[in-house]
Amino acid sequence: MNIFRLFGDLSHLAAIAILLLKIWKTRSCAGVSGKTQLLFAVCFITRYIDLFLHFVSLYNTEKVMKLIYISASVFTCYLIFFKFKATYDGNHDSMRAEFLIVPAAGLACLINTKFDAIEILWTFSIYLEAVAILPQLFLISKTGEAETITSHYLFAQGSYRALYILNWIYRYHYESHVDTIAIVAGVVQTILYCDFFYLYITKVVKGQKIVLPA
């Protein structure tokens, strides 16, 4: 474990907590893409499938983190699609998720480290996570604005994988550890946030709201 990965995971936890708090406190999921949250839940379940297969006692923080990620993302989907369904902005959350899931699944079958079920699921989860934020970014571009709390969520969510890139550089240099699939997908994922990061740094940090050119 290195500092980049630690802060990456903390940033990821923060993102999940910020979103949950936003929905719970405002009792509304306006401006939140339910599809992105569904895709994240699928990512966690397919990536941590080992938790369900050979359940080992919660002997280390990694197992606990995996369970937190899965339960928090499923609970977030429950809040969006059931509890606060009336506030779900279905009209603007209109990116076709199939256009993300099918290519990720196809690519996972073509480019992977070994062709077995668990590895394919892990690879699918990595590819899907890289593009899972697109419905959320699409929704913001459709509505033309993002609530400040939602931009904090996006900043934490985008920073998590950006910090993981620093972690991979660190591990390449000190542990000669390279996981090419995760690195390539992580770079793509972080690039998708670039224009948002620019808006966040120039706008939100100055206390302004993010308003996209409609």
Binding site: T113, S176, H177, V178, D179, T180, A182
Partner: peptide, 10 residues
């Protein structure tokens, strides 16, 4: 020689 261990990251 680069090692690809089992995916040991979240």
């Amino acid at each position: 020689q680069f090692t690809i261990k089992d995916h040991d990251e979240l």
